[in-house]
Design a binder for these strands. Structure first.
Lengths: 198, 198
DNA sequence: CGGGGTCTTGATCTCAATCAACCAATGTGG
DNA sequence: CCACATTGGTTGATTGAGATCAAGACCCCG
Protein backbone atom coordinates (compact mmCIF):
# COMPACT_ATOMS: atom_id res chain seq x y z
CA UNK A 1 0.00 0.00 0.00
CA UNK A 2 2.81 2.36 0.79
CA UNK A 3 4.50 1.37 -2.40
CA UNK A 4 8.19 0.90 -2.51
CA UNK A 5 8.84 2.28 0.95
CA UNK A 6 7.06 -0.48 2.75
CA UNK A 7 9.99 -2.81 2.49
CA UNK A 8 12.08 -3.50 5.50
CA UNK A 9 14.26 -0.66 6.56
CA UNK A 10 17.93 -1.07 7.31
CA UNK A 11 20.13 1.59 8.79
CA UNK A 12 21.00 4.40 6.51
CA UNK A 13 21.34 2.52 3.30
CA UNK A 14 21.10 4.57 0.21
CA UNK A 15 18.82 2.91 -2.27
CA UNK A 16 18.15 3.48 -5.92
CA UNK A 17 16.73 6.95 -6.33
CA UNK A 18 18.83 8.56 -3.65
CA UNK A 19 16.47 7.95 -0.77
CA UNK A 20 17.63 6.71 2.62
CA UNK A 21 16.07 4.34 5.09
CA UNK A 22 16.67 4.89 8.79
CA UNK A 23 15.94 2.53 11.68
CA UNK A 24 13.78 3.47 14.64
CA UNK A 25 15.87 5.30 17.21
CA UNK A 26 18.74 6.27 14.90
CA UNK A 27 19.90 9.82 14.29
CA UNK A 28 19.28 11.29 10.86
CA UNK A 29 21.49 14.32 11.31
CA UNK A 30 22.84 16.48 14.11
CA UNK A 31 22.52 20.19 14.79
CA UNK A 32 25.48 22.20 13.58
CA UNK A 33 26.51 19.68 10.97
CA UNK A 34 26.40 20.57 7.29
CA UNK A 35 23.96 18.96 4.91
CA UNK A 36 20.86 19.48 2.86
CA UNK A 37 17.10 19.38 3.14
CA UNK A 38 15.00 16.21 3.01
CA UNK A 39 11.44 15.26 2.47
CA UNK A 40 10.10 12.62 4.85
CA UNK A 41 8.49 9.91 2.73
CA UNK A 42 7.54 7.50 5.52
CA UNK A 43 7.56 7.51 9.28
CA UNK A 44 7.88 10.05 12.04
CA UNK A 45 10.88 12.26 12.78
CA UNK A 46 11.64 14.03 16.01
CA UNK A 47 13.45 17.37 15.89
CA UNK A 48 15.53 18.72 18.75
CA UNK A 49 17.21 22.01 19.34
CA UNK A 50 20.15 22.76 21.61
CA UNK A 51 18.67 24.20 24.80
CA UNK A 52 20.33 25.73 27.84
CA UNK A 53 20.57 22.36 29.52
CA UNK A 54 20.87 19.74 26.84
CA UNK A 55 18.79 19.21 23.74
CA UNK A 56 15.10 19.98 23.95
CA UNK A 57 12.19 18.77 21.91
CA UNK A 58 11.61 21.14 19.01
CA UNK A 59 8.97 19.59 16.82
CA UNK A 60 7.73 16.62 14.86
CA UNK A 61 7.82 15.90 11.16
CA UNK A 62 5.48 13.46 9.45
CA UNK A 63 5.42 11.90 6.02
CA UNK A 64 5.24 14.64 3.43
CA UNK A 65 6.99 17.21 5.60
CA UNK A 66 10.26 18.84 4.70
CA UNK A 67 13.07 18.82 7.25
CA UNK A 68 16.33 20.71 7.27
CA UNK A 69 15.11 23.51 5.02
CA UNK A 70 17.18 25.91 7.08
CA UNK A 71 20.33 24.52 5.47
CA UNK A 72 19.36 26.14 2.19
CA UNK A 73 19.66 29.44 3.95
CA UNK A 74 22.27 28.84 6.62
CA UNK A 75 24.33 25.96 5.29
CA UNK A 76 24.04 23.83 8.42
CA UNK A 77 21.31 22.25 10.52
CA UNK A 78 19.91 24.15 13.49
CA UNK A 79 17.97 21.13 14.69
CA UNK A 80 18.98 17.53 15.07
CA UNK A 81 16.68 14.84 13.73
CA UNK A 82 15.99 11.32 14.95
CA UNK A 83 13.75 8.57 13.62
CA UNK A 84 10.96 7.71 16.08
CA UNK A 85 9.76 4.96 13.79
CA UNK A 86 11.35 3.41 10.71
CA UNK A 87 11.81 6.35 8.39
CA UNK A 88 12.45 6.90 4.70
CA UNK A 89 13.67 10.27 3.46
CA UNK A 90 14.71 11.60 0.13
CA UNK A 91 16.76 14.66 -0.80
CA UNK A 92 14.78 17.84 -1.26
CA UNK A 93 15.90 21.01 -2.85
CA UNK A 94 16.78 20.16 -6.38
CA UNK A 95 17.28 23.62 -7.80
CA UNK A 96 14.18 23.46 -9.93
CA UNK A 97 11.98 22.31 -7.11
CA UNK A 98 12.98 24.77 -4.45
CA UNK A 99 12.74 27.69 -6.83
CA UNK A 100 9.02 27.14 -6.91
CA UNK A 101 7.39 29.42 -4.42
CA UNK A 102 4.33 27.20 -4.58
CA UNK A 103 6.27 24.34 -3.00
CA UNK A 104 7.80 26.57 -0.36
CA UNK A 105 4.41 28.00 0.54
CA UNK A 106 3.13 24.48 0.91
CA UNK A 107 5.99 23.63 3.26
CA UNK A 108 5.40 26.77 5.26
CA UNK A 109 1.70 26.03 5.66
CA UNK A 110 2.14 22.45 6.80
CA UNK A 111 4.84 23.51 9.24
CA UNK A 112 2.53 26.05 10.80
CA UNK A 113 -0.14 23.44 11.20
CA UNK A 114 2.35 21.08 12.76
CA UNK A 115 3.13 23.61 15.48
CA UNK A 116 -0.38 23.46 16.81
CA UNK A 117 -0.42 19.67 16.66
CA UNK A 118 2.79 19.51 18.61
CA UNK A 119 1.69 22.01 21.22
CA UNK A 120 -1.48 20.06 21.75
CA UNK A 121 0.65 17.10 22.86
CA UNK A 122 1.39 18.96 26.05
CA UNK A 123 -2.17 19.68 27.04
CA UNK A 124 -4.62 17.67 29.06
CA UNK A 125 -4.44 14.38 30.91
CA UNK A 126 -1.77 11.77 30.16
CA UNK A 127 -4.40 9.66 28.39
CA UNK A 128 -5.30 12.50 26.10
CA UNK A 129 -1.71 13.41 25.36
CA UNK A 130 -0.67 9.91 24.43
CA UNK A 131 -3.75 9.30 22.35
CA UNK A 132 -3.16 12.51 20.46
CA UNK A 133 0.46 11.59 19.82
CA UNK A 134 -0.51 8.22 18.44
CA UNK A 135 -3.26 9.76 16.33
CA UNK A 136 -0.80 12.28 14.96
CA UNK A 137 1.72 9.60 14.13
CA UNK A 138 -1.03 7.59 12.52
CA UNK A 139 -1.95 10.49 10.26
CA UNK A 140 1.62 10.61 9.03
CA UNK A 141 1.62 6.94 8.16
CA UNK A 142 -1.89 6.52 6.82
CA UNK A 143 -1.91 6.59 3.08
CA UNK A 144 -5.63 6.93 2.85
CA UNK A 145 -6.14 4.01 5.19
CA UNK A 146 -8.40 4.09 8.22
CA UNK A 147 -6.52 1.70 10.45
CA UNK A 148 -2.75 2.03 10.75
CA UNK A 149 -0.11 0.12 12.63
CA UNK A 150 2.14 2.63 14.35
CA UNK A 151 5.53 1.72 15.74
CA UNK A 152 5.48 2.75 19.39
CA UNK A 153 8.41 5.07 20.11
CA UNK A 154 10.59 4.51 23.13
CA UNK A 155 8.93 5.56 26.36
CA UNK A 156 11.58 8.19 26.91
CA UNK A 157 10.72 9.83 23.62
CA UNK A 158 7.02 9.75 24.33
CA UNK A 159 7.72 11.24 27.72
CA UNK A 160 9.76 14.12 26.35
CA UNK A 161 7.27 14.93 23.63
CA UNK A 162 4.27 14.91 25.93
CA UNK A 163 5.99 16.54 28.86
CA UNK A 164 5.41 13.54 31.12
CA UNK A 165 7.77 11.13 32.85
CA UNK A 166 8.58 7.63 31.63
CA UNK A 167 6.85 6.13 34.63
CA UNK A 168 3.64 7.97 33.91
CA UNK A 169 3.82 7.02 30.25
CA UNK A 170 4.38 3.38 31.11
CA UNK A 171 1.48 3.35 33.56
CA UNK A 172 -0.81 5.12 31.15
CA UNK A 173 -0.09 2.79 28.27
CA UNK A 174 -0.54 -0.23 30.51
CA UNK A 175 -3.86 1.08 31.72
CA UNK A 176 -5.13 1.91 28.24
CA UNK A 177 -4.05 -1.53 27.08
CA UNK A 178 -5.79 -3.12 30.04
CA UNK A 179 -8.95 -1.13 29.32
CA UNK A 180 -8.92 -2.37 25.76
CA UNK A 181 -8.49 1.13 24.35
CA UNK A 182 -5.10 0.32 22.95
CA UNK A 183 -4.01 -2.72 21.00
CA UNK A 184 -0.30 -3.16 21.59
CA UNK A 185 1.56 -5.96 19.80
CA UNK A 186 5.09 -7.14 19.35
CA UNK A 187 8.02 -7.90 21.61
CA UNK A 188 9.30 -5.41 24.10
CA UNK A 189 11.94 -4.10 21.73
CA UNK A 190 9.68 -3.32 18.83
CA UNK A 191 6.07 -2.69 19.68
CA UNK A 192 3.26 -1.57 17.43
CA UNK A 193 -0.12 -0.05 18.14
CA UNK A 194 -3.21 -0.06 15.98
CA UNK A 195 -4.52 3.43 15.52
CA UNK A 196 -7.73 4.50 13.80
CA UNK A 197 -7.29 7.62 11.71
CA UNK A 198 -10.16 9.99 11.14
CA UNK B 1 14.00 53.90 18.66
CA UNK B 2 11.40 51.75 16.96
CA UNK B 3 10.93 54.39 14.37
CA UNK B 4 7.51 55.27 13.19
CA UNK B 5 5.78 52.38 14.89
CA UNK B 6 6.47 53.63 18.37
CA UNK B 7 3.61 56.05 18.27
CA UNK B 8 0.46 55.36 20.17
CA UNK B 9 -1.64 52.60 18.72
CA UNK B 10 -5.34 52.92 18.12
CA UNK B 11 -7.60 50.11 17.08
CA UNK B 12 -7.25 49.01 13.55
CA UNK B 13 -6.65 52.32 11.89
CA UNK B 14 -5.05 52.14 8.53
CA UNK B 15 -2.22 54.60 8.32
CA UNK B 16 -0.15 55.95 5.49
CA UNK B 17 1.72 53.04 3.96
CA UNK B 18 -1.05 50.51 4.41
CA UNK B 19 -0.02 49.28 7.81
CA UNK B 20 -2.48 48.70 10.64
CA UNK B 21 -2.21 49.28 14.36
CA UNK B 22 -4.06 46.96 16.71
CA UNK B 23 -4.68 47.40 20.44
CA UNK B 24 -3.67 44.85 23.02
CA UNK B 25 -6.35 42.18 23.32
CA UNK B 26 -8.05 42.87 19.97
CA UNK B 27 -8.54 40.28 17.27
CA UNK B 28 -6.55 40.73 14.07
CA UNK B 29 -8.42 38.15 12.05
CA UNK B 30 -10.49 35.02 12.61
CA UNK B 31 -10.06 31.48 11.35
CA UNK B 32 -12.14 30.71 8.29
CA UNK B 33 -12.39 34.29 7.19
CA UNK B 34 -10.84 35.43 3.92
CA UNK B 35 -7.89 37.76 3.80
CA UNK B 36 -4.22 38.06 3.06
CA UNK B 37 -0.86 37.60 4.71
CA UNK B 38 0.80 40.14 7.01
CA UNK B 39 4.18 40.86 8.39
CA UNK B 40 4.27 41.73 12.07
CA UNK B 41 6.24 44.95 12.43
CA UNK B 42 5.86 45.47 16.16
CA UNK B 43 4.45 43.52 19.07
CA UNK B 44 3.42 39.96 19.79
CA UNK B 45 0.61 38.02 18.14
CA UNK B 46 -1.09 34.93 19.44
CA UNK B 47 -2.38 32.34 16.96
CA UNK B 48 -5.21 29.93 17.74
CA UNK B 49 -6.64 27.00 15.90
CA UNK B 50 -10.09 25.52 16.22
CA UNK B 51 -9.74 22.48 18.49
CA UNK B 52 -12.22 19.81 19.46
CA UNK B 53 -13.41 21.83 22.41
CA UNK B 54 -12.99 25.48 21.55
CA UNK B 55 -10.00 27.30 20.16
CA UNK B 56 -6.57 26.15 21.27
CA UNK B 57 -3.25 27.92 21.37
CA UNK B 58 -1.41 27.32 18.13
CA UNK B 59 1.66 29.49 18.18
CA UNK B 60 3.22 32.89 18.64
CA UNK B 61 4.42 35.44 16.11
CA UNK B 62 6.94 38.15 16.89
CA UNK B 63 8.08 41.25 15.07
CA UNK B 64 9.49 40.22 11.71
CA UNK B 65 7.37 37.11 11.43
CA UNK B 66 4.83 36.53 8.71
CA UNK B 67 1.29 35.53 9.65
CA UNK B 68 -1.52 34.26 7.51
CA UNK B 69 0.73 32.90 4.78
CA UNK B 70 -1.69 30.00 4.38
CA UNK B 71 -4.16 32.36 2.69
CA UNK B 72 -1.87 32.57 -0.32
CA UNK B 73 -2.45 28.88 -0.77
CA UNK B 74 -5.90 28.29 0.66
CA UNK B 75 -7.63 31.66 0.35
CA UNK B 76 -8.73 31.82 3.98
CA UNK B 77 -7.14 31.80 7.43
CA UNK B 78 -6.73 28.49 9.26
CA UNK B 79 -5.70 30.24 12.46
CA UNK B 80 -7.17 33.21 14.21
CA UNK B 81 -4.84 35.96 15.40
CA UNK B 82 -5.01 38.23 18.42
CA UNK B 83 -2.74 41.02 19.62
CA UNK B 84 -1.16 40.19 22.98
CA UNK B 85 0.50 43.60 23.07
CA UNK B 86 -0.01 46.65 20.91
CA UNK B 87 0.74 45.41 17.43
CA UNK B 88 1.55 46.91 14.05
CA UNK B 89 1.23 44.82 10.91
CA UNK B 90 1.63 45.51 7.26
CA UNK B 91 0.40 43.62 4.23
CA UNK B 92 2.75 40.94 2.97
CA UNK B 93 2.64 39.21 -0.31
CA UNK B 94 3.05 41.87 -2.92
CA UNK B 95 3.48 39.75 -6.01
CA UNK B 96 7.11 40.64 -6.41
CA UNK B 97 7.99 39.89 -2.84
CA UNK B 98 6.30 36.55 -2.43
CA UNK B 99 7.69 35.29 -5.69
CA UNK B 100 11.12 35.37 -4.12
CA UNK B 101 11.95 31.95 -2.77
CA UNK B 102 14.62 33.58 -0.64
CA UNK B 103 11.96 35.40 1.35
CA UNK B 104 9.80 32.32 1.69
CA UNK B 105 12.76 30.27 2.88
CA UNK B 106 13.44 32.94 5.45
CA UNK B 107 9.84 32.77 6.66
CA UNK B 108 9.99 28.99 6.81
CA UNK B 109 13.18 29.02 8.84
CA UNK B 110 11.98 31.54 11.41
CA UNK B 111 8.70 29.67 11.77
CA UNK B 112 10.53 26.44 12.52
CA UNK B 113 12.58 28.19 15.13
CA UNK B 114 9.45 29.66 16.65
CA UNK B 115 7.98 26.18 17.13
CA UNK B 116 10.73 25.23 19.50
CA UNK B 117 10.42 28.53 21.37
CA UNK B 118 6.73 27.99 21.80
CA UNK B 119 7.06 24.40 22.92
CA UNK B 120 9.60 25.44 25.50
CA UNK B 121 6.93 27.59 27.13
CA UNK B 122 5.30 24.42 28.37
CA UNK B 123 8.33 22.94 30.03
CA UNK B 124 9.64 23.35 33.54
CA UNK B 125 8.46 25.20 36.60
CA UNK B 126 5.97 28.08 36.40
CA UNK B 127 8.83 30.50 37.09
CA UNK B 128 10.77 29.18 34.17
CA UNK B 129 7.82 29.19 31.81
CA UNK B 130 6.81 32.74 32.54
CA UNK B 131 10.36 34.01 32.37
CA UNK B 132 10.83 32.33 29.01
CA UNK B 133 7.62 33.83 27.69
CA UNK B 134 8.65 37.32 28.72
CA UNK B 135 12.13 36.81 27.29
CA UNK B 136 10.63 35.63 24.04
CA UNK B 137 8.31 38.61 23.86
CA UNK B 138 11.22 40.87 24.65
CA UNK B 139 13.19 39.47 21.73
CA UNK B 140 10.37 40.40 19.42
CA UNK B 141 10.29 43.97 20.64
CA UNK B 142 13.99 44.66 21.08
CA UNK B 143 15.37 46.54 18.16
CA UNK B 144 18.93 45.99 19.19
CA UNK B 145 18.24 47.17 22.70
CA UNK B 146 19.26 45.29 25.83
CA UNK B 147 16.45 46.34 28.10
CA UNK B 148 12.89 46.31 26.81
CA UNK B 149 9.56 47.25 28.29
CA UNK B 150 7.12 44.46 27.50
CA UNK B 151 3.38 44.87 27.83
CA UNK B 152 2.21 42.08 30.12
CA UNK B 153 -0.52 40.05 28.39
CA UNK B 154 -3.68 39.17 30.23
CA UNK B 155 -3.21 36.44 32.79
CA UNK B 156 -5.60 34.20 30.92
CA UNK B 157 -3.43 34.42 27.82
CA UNK B 158 -0.27 33.73 29.76
CA UNK B 159 -2.00 30.78 31.36
CA UNK B 160 -3.08 29.27 28.07
CA UNK B 161 0.29 29.73 26.45
CA UNK B 162 2.23 28.22 29.32
CA UNK B 163 -0.24 25.49 30.12
CA UNK B 164 -0.84 26.80 33.63
CA UNK B 165 -3.92 28.21 35.36
CA UNK B 166 -4.58 31.90 35.91
CA UNK B 167 -4.23 31.43 39.64
CA UNK B 168 -0.80 29.89 39.32
CA UNK B 169 0.26 32.63 36.93
CA UNK B 170 -0.96 35.32 39.27
CA UNK B 171 0.83 33.79 42.23
CA UNK B 172 4.01 33.26 40.28
CA UNK B 173 4.16 36.83 39.01
CA UNK B 174 3.44 38.16 42.47
CA UNK B 175 6.21 36.07 43.93
CA UNK B 176 8.73 37.05 41.26
CA UNK B 177 7.80 40.68 41.77
CA UNK B 178 8.18 40.31 45.51
CA UNK B 179 11.55 38.66 45.09
CA UNK B 180 12.70 41.57 42.94
CA UNK B 181 13.18 39.38 39.89
CA UNK B 182 10.47 41.15 37.98
CA UNK B 183 9.86 44.85 37.67
CA UNK B 184 6.16 45.33 36.99
CA UNK B 185 4.84 48.82 36.39
CA UNK B 186 1.62 50.45 35.37
CA UNK B 187 -1.98 50.23 36.44
CA UNK B 188 -3.78 46.94 36.61
CA UNK B 189 -5.28 47.36 33.15
CA UNK B 190 -2.05 47.98 31.30
CA UNK B 191 1.03 46.60 32.96
CA UNK B 192 4.57 46.53 31.65
CA UNK B 193 7.58 44.50 32.64
CA UNK B 194 11.21 45.32 32.07
CA UNK B 195 12.96 42.45 30.40
CA UNK B 196 16.65 42.10 29.65
CA UNK B 197 17.33 40.61 26.25
CA UNK B 198 20.44 38.61 25.57
C1' DC C 1 -25.29 52.70 41.44
C1' DG C 2 -25.04 47.81 39.86
C1' DG C 3 -22.74 44.42 37.01
C1' DG C 4 -19.15 42.22 34.44
C1' DG C 5 -14.36 41.52 33.77
C1' DT C 6 -9.72 40.90 35.65
C1' DC C 7 -6.76 40.01 39.24
C1' DT C 8 -5.62 38.37 43.90
C1' DT C 9 -5.48 35.41 47.86
C1' DG C 10 -6.69 31.43 50.79
C1' DA C 11 -7.90 26.45 51.76
C1' DT C 12 -8.11 21.99 50.10
C1' DC C 13 -7.31 18.10 47.20
C1' DT C 14 -5.58 15.37 43.44
C1' DC C 15 -2.76 13.47 40.26
C1' DA C 16 1.64 13.09 38.29
C1' DA C 17 6.60 13.51 39.88
C1' DT C 18 9.83 11.37 42.49
C1' DC C 19 12.40 7.75 44.61
C1' DA C 20 13.33 3.03 44.59
C1' DA C 21 13.38 -1.70 43.40
C1' DC C 22 12.99 -5.18 40.08
C1' DC C 23 12.66 -7.79 35.57
C1' DA C 24 13.76 -9.13 30.84
C1' DA C 25 16.54 -8.76 26.98
C1' DT C 26 20.89 -7.67 25.06
C1' DG C 27 25.58 -7.05 24.83
C1' DT C 28 30.53 -7.78 26.51
C1' DG C 29 34.77 -9.76 27.91
C1' DG C 30 37.43 -13.37 29.77
C1' DC D 1 29.80 -20.54 27.78
C1' DC D 2 29.12 -18.14 31.89
C1' DA D 3 29.45 -13.82 34.93
C1' DC D 4 28.52 -9.21 34.53
C1' DA D 5 26.98 -4.64 33.05
C1' DT D 6 23.70 -1.97 30.48
C1' DT D 7 19.43 -0.49 28.69
C1' DG D 8 14.40 -0.19 28.45
C1' DG D 9 10.34 -1.20 30.65
C1' DT D 10 7.34 -2.09 34.80
C1' DT D 11 5.45 -1.54 39.40
C1' DG D 12 4.89 0.27 44.20
C1' DA D 13 4.98 3.90 47.97
C1' DT D 14 5.33 8.50 49.04
C1' DT D 15 5.16 13.41 48.31
C1' DG D 16 4.48 17.89 46.77
C1' DA D 17 3.39 21.28 43.31
C1' DG D 18 -0.17 23.00 40.91
C1' DA D 19 -5.27 22.42 39.99
C1' DT D 20 -9.51 23.34 41.84
C1' DC D 21 -12.98 25.64 44.51
C1' DA D 22 -14.27 29.77 46.74
C1' DA D 23 -14.42 34.53 48.07
C1' DG D 24 -13.21 39.14 47.87
C1' DA D 25 -10.84 43.51 45.77
C1' DC D 26 -10.49 46.50 42.15
C1' DC D 27 -11.59 48.89 38.00
C1' DC D 28 -14.09 50.43 34.21
C1' DC D 29 -18.41 51.33 31.92
C1' DG D 30 -23.30 51.62 31.25
Amino acid sequence: MNGKYDMVVANNIEAGDGWHAIERGKDIYAAGQGGGAWRVMLGVVRLDRAGEDGPEFGGLALAGDVIGAETLLLGSYTFSARALTPVVIEPWGAAAERASSEVLLQALTTTEGRVADTLALRNGSPDRRINRLLALMGRGLAHGRKLVRVALPQLRDIAEMTGLTVETVSRTISRLKEAGELDVRGNSRERQVWVTVK
